[in-house]
Nucleic acid binder design. Structure first.
Length: 431
RNA sequence: UCCGCGAUAGCUCAAUGGUAGAGCAUGCGGCUGUUAACCGCAGGGUUGCAGGUUCGAGUCCUGCUCGCGGAGCCA
């Protein structure tokens, strides 16, 4: 059977079709009735006009409520007044189930109310647009790496120890082996993959028990992390900007209707083309001081300061060579200035802040051992990782891109909670 | 953990310390082209919880609970 969906309805003008879906909204004007169906792919308005057969249809129309499931038959007609370009002259309605008191009405609702009903909120057109853009971004990420010769390397979710720092880990009992932790990053495993396959990317959910309560934080979020052997910081930045350009331009090419639904101004997105500006941490500090911010060298650049720096540019900006003190143990120091790490952050414009973070990794066994000691990390847990430096160590680098922050920025949202079907936050575990 | 804001009808919000109200939603009625349709009528309240001040508290005070935004930390 060849199922017809609303999305392709304009290809069936003049034909009798059967549509299956849910009632989005209905309107009535005496002897003519309008029934808007959604089927997951789009919306179409069915028209029931007064006729010899309309008494039965009018009765069915009266029964239908918002989100009731039904089957609608009729002839597709070109209609310039309709948003999708066509309408359905309804000849039959078969009700499957009547929804009683659907809680989400077409009017305003608060965040808590909607998040409590996220499983239903997903049905609204705005959420459809966001999750379609999310899907496309993930598709573009996979295309970019798959076509670029990268191997997809799935890292474990259960890990024995922290990748970065020991705070903010979710713990879970693990049989006789004690405690397992949910992964914060697949990076260390990505490095093993890079030494095995040359170029890999890890893509999966990551978990951070940070008690952050902001528009940019989830406790469970998706991250894509490429890792490349024989790659230094400059190579890493080349890859990062090519990658970001690919994603954004692909969304602009394929998901413009969704961005329009979201009323997204795409000026800044169109600017996401190579080369992206690259500034050092020192230069960023200089920008901040010129803007009148008192900033002490060595501090991390916080949210407000990120915005001030990124406002100086019309596209995402890369900041590199951060003070080593604030960065992770596995990042390589700058040979020209050991106070600096060969680290990299990418800040999205319009106040969206950090969407990517990466570095060239420390490839010298002795230096890495020393860093582990300095950070009071348990060396036993990292023996396998140290093996990567014992057996054919090479310069290598990589970065991580946060999927939800990227979706939030591209869609122009004010919170990441709408970028994932079911958000996990410090005070939200349901639905 | 800290700072700030908030909680009133199913939902979104009003209400000088003095009779708790509107829009939407729901129900009933009307309308042959509506686009979050429109018009009329109706039902709908333990003002988050526990105390206190006052002749009188949705409103002022104290504590608690929950939510929202931010800081730190981060993608």
């Amino acid at each position: 059977m060849n199922r017809i969906y609303i999305e392709q309805l304009s290809k069936h003008i003049g034909k009798e079709v059967t549509l299956r879906g849910w009632l989005y909204i209905k309107r009535s004007s005496g002897k003519i009735k309008f029934v808007v169906m959604r089927d997951g792919t789009g919306l179409v308005q069915g028209v029931i006009a007064k006729s010899e057969k309309s008494d039965e249809l009018f009765a069915k129309f009266e029964e239908l409520t918002q989100e009731s499931s039904f089957i609608m038959k009729g002839k597709v007609r070109k209609e310039d007044r309709a948003p999708g370009g066509c309408e359905l002259d309804v000849s039959d309605i078969q009700i499957m189930q009547i929804a009683k008191d659907y809680p989400i009405t077409p009017k305003d609702h608060g965040v808590e109310f909607l998040m409590d009903r996220r499983h239903l909120w997903l049905r609204s057109s705005r959420q459809h647009a966001i999750l379609r853009v999310r899907h496309h971004i993930i598709k573009a990420i996979r295309e970019f790496f798959d076509d670029g010769g990268f191997l997809l390397l799935d890292a474990p979710i259960f890990t024995p120890a922290a990748c970065e720092g020991t705070t903010s880990l979710f713990e879970t009992p693990y049989f006789d082996l004690g405690t397992a932790y949910l992964t914060q990053s697949g990076q260390l495993y990505g490095e093993a993959g890079a030494m095995a396959f040359g170029k890999v990317y890890v893509f999966g959910p990551t978990f951070r028990a940070e008690k952050s309560k902001t528009r940019r934080h989830l406790t469970e979020f998706w991250m894509v992390e490429p890792e490349v052997a024989f790659s230094d910081l400059d190579d890493n930045m080349d890859l990062a900007e090519e990658f970001l350009e690919y994603i954004v331009q692909s969304v602009l090419k394929h998901r413009m209707p969704e961005l329009q639904t979201l009323e997204r101004n795409t000026t800044f997105l169109s600017n996401v083309k190579r080369p992206l500006p690259r500034i050092t941490y020192d230069e960023a500090v200089e920008i901040l001081r010129k803007q009148g911010v008192t900033f002490e060298w060595g501090n991390d650049i916080g949210g407000t300061d990120e915005t001030i720096v990124s406002e100086q540019f019309d596209r995402p900006v890369m900041i590199h060579r951060y003070p080593a003190e604030t960065k992770a143990f596995y990042m390589k120091r700058d040979p020209k200035n050991p106070k600096l790490s060969l680290a990299l952050d990418v800040l999205a414009p319009e106040g969206y802040g950090e969407i990517m973070g990466g570095s060239q990794r420390e490839d010298d066994l002795d230096v890495l051992l020393q860093r582990i000691k300095e950070n009071n990390l348990p060396q036993e847990a990292f023996e396998w990782y140290l093996d990567l430096r014992r057996y054919g160590s090479v310069p290598h680098s990589g970065f991580g891109l946060g999927v939800e922050r990227t979706v939030s920025w591209i869609c122009g949202l004010d919170h990441v909670r709408e970028t994932i079907p079911f958000a996990r936050m410090i005070y939200r575990l349901t639905p």
